[in-house]
């Protein structure tokens, strides 16, 4: 179904009623699976992703969670001085509007796997865990655009839950532009957080940054767009990533605060007391 992008100019509202700079509702939970080392569940609008992290643990034919994953080097797996990050993504057949079977060797899935693996390997302190492997398995339950961003965010949360040291959160979101490539509209506004409909119609990119800094760790653009519009899109995307980081951070803090209250974790020293002496 073609999306009538001309209406944007009238009300400055997008098809789902958002303004150009608004994220969709992001809802996240951590520690959703008690038996896993780390787990998370993330919704960005109607894109719903579940993540389970196993490890760091010794790789082996018996102990692996099974299934092929990206980044796996076969025989030499986990032999190095750094932990290896292995991502496997399962896209449920019922996740999108048209029911599709995604095989294991699906090229698109493989690319998503290696993108997520490389993004997280850049942030995780893998040198602390030699001869081991971090297994990240992601399940896509529902897709409505910004899939890669949701996968990265869910994987980050699960790694935080698993207690794997990392430089900072890897927060991701998408950005687009209000008019198509063909329209060649120089004055097009950038858009934040594309949904499926917009993603089909408009140029867009996925960007992930490292924490509050402006350091971009992932930048994926699969559509044609004038280079003059790219800067605006990137700026909006980086800005969105910071918002996403705050949301993820709040989820982790809330969980931590509850654990301290319940007495599962001993209270630490406050930051203020420390600075006194």
């Amino acid at each position: 179904m073609p999306l009538d992008t001309s209406t944007y100019n009238l009300a400055l509202l997008r098809v789902d009623g958002r303004r150009w700079n608004e994220l969709r509702r992001v809802h996240a939970q951590i520690r959703t699976q008690a038996a896993a080392d780390g787990s998370s569940y993330l919704e960005m609008g109607h894109t719903k992703v579940m993540c389970v992290v196993t490890g760091p643990s010794e790789p082996g034919p018996r102990r692996g969670t099974g299934g092929g994953g990206a980044g796996g080097g076969g025989a030499a797996a986990g032999a190095g001085a750094k932990a290896e990050v292995v991502v496997s993504i399962v896209i449920a057949g019922f996740s999108s509007v048209d029911r599709k079977r995604h095989g294991r060797g699906d090229k698109r899935t493989l690319e998503l796997q290696s993108t997520v693996a490389n993004a997280l390997a850049a942030s995780l302190h893998t040198h602390l865990f030699p001869h081991s492997q971090v297994n990240i398995s992601l399940h896509v339950l529902s897709q409505d655009g910004s899939l890669l961003a949701a996968l990265i965010n869910a994987a980050t949360l699960a790694c935080v839950d698993a207690g794997i040291p990392m430089t900072d959160y890897v927060a991701a979101c998408t950005a687009g532009s209000t008019s198509t490539y063909a329209a060649n509209d120089e004055g097009a506004d950038p858009l934040l957080d594309l949904n499926h409909q917009e993603e089909q119609e408009l140029p867009g990119l996925t960007v992930a940054t490292l924490g509050e800094s402006d350091r971009v760790v992932v930048l994926v653009c699969e559509s044609r767009v004038q280079v003059s519009r790219l800067e605006g899109m990137l700026a909006v995307g980086v800005d969105g990533c910071k918002q996403v980081r705050e949301i993820l951070d709040r989820v982790v803090r809330e969980k931590g605060r509850r654990m301290v209250q319940e007495g599962t974790v001993e209270k630490g020293i406050g930051l203020n007391e420390m600075d006194v002496d």
């Binding site: 990392m166 430089t167 924490g211 982790v252 931590g256 605060r257 301290v260 630490g268 020293i269 406050g270």
Partner: peptide, 11 residues
């Protein structure tokens, strides 16, 4: 961070 909880997060 400074008042409610003593939790620190990555980064």
């Amino acid at each position: 961070t400074s008042t409610a909880s003593d939790i620190v997060t990555p980064g």
